[in-house]
């Protein structure tokens, strides 16, 4: 078992909760994110924020503060997004490199599962380096990944980012896919939508395998020569 205590002390101030809000200022989605590349830039998963009107960030050491964040880049293909926020005190987590990523290596996942406001830390191993059906590389993690962990960093035991955890992805089963595609509102029991319950159960199935997007897919923030843009320009959002 890895002793993560030194790493968690270093990275804790740089991992936040990401809230996606609708026009009525209601929370419609929640995930995790981490400061990366430079101060004031946070990485998260696109699916956490893509339906939002506004985005807020909170850190576990300042639970009464909700920072405004702006979505600057959305990469739908890899399900990644960059947020900009105004707090230069939080340091970016260092980037790993491809040479250190090996199947079987110990990894750390640190984020905010479920509705937690306290940072949690989990460890596991990098089970496999795989490709999806269109050739994008993915890391499979043998570890505890739950809803809310989406957007949190996948770290080496020395605290370098090697991926972005994606709790929205899961193994596909034909039967479960069908439930996922069912329209809600058709069947209810005592006023509770059964399809919604089934879909929530599927989303929270804990199969012991999680996915992470390799760090090298994380889009770079804006520089003078690199204007902010989405991998799909139609997704561009400011």
């Amino acid at each position: 078992m890895i002793d993560c205590s030194r790493v968690i002390t270093q990275i804790k101030p740089s991992i936040g909760v990401v809230f996606a809000l609708n026009e009525k200022n209601e929370i419609i989605s929640k995930g995790s994110g981490f400061v990366f590349y430079q101060e004031g830039i946070m990485v998260t998963c696109n699916h956490v924020i893509e339906k939002s009107s506004t985005v807020k960030i909170q850190f576990s050491d300042k639970k009464d503060v909700y920072l405004d964040a702006t979505v600057t880049i959305q990469d739908r293909e890899h399900d990644l997004a960059l947020l900009k926020f105004d707090d230069k005190t939080r340091k970016p987590i260092p980037k790993g490199n491809k040479d250190i990523v090996k199947e079987g290596m110990p990894v750390i996942v640190s984020g905010y599962p479920f509705n937690m406001r306290d940072l949690t830390i989990h460890q596991g191993i990098l089970s496999a380096i795989v490709e999806d059906a269109t050739g994008n590389e993915l890391y499979l993690i043998d570890g505890t990944i739950n809803a809310g962990n989406s957007g949190c960093p996948l770290l080496t035991e020395s605290g370098e980012v090697i991926g972005v955890v994606n709790a929205g992805r899961r193994e596909s089963f034909k039967t479960l896919e069908k439930v996922d595609e069912m329209k809600t509102g058709a069947v209810s029991l005592y006023g509770v939508d059964l399809i919604e319950i089934y879909q929530a159960l599927i989303r929270n199935l804990q199969l012991g395998i999680g996915y992470a997007v390799p760090y090298f897919y994380i889009p770079e923030p804006k520089t003078k020569n690199n204007k902010e843009e989405s991998s799909d320009n139609k997704d561009f959002k400011v």
């Binding site: 739908r76 890899h78 999806d132 994008n136 992805r169 799909d232």
Partner: peptide, 8 residues
């Protein structure tokens, strides 16, 4: 195969 992220 592993399904990729859904498109818009």
């Amino acid at each position: 195969s592993i399904s990729p992220v859904p498109r818009k």
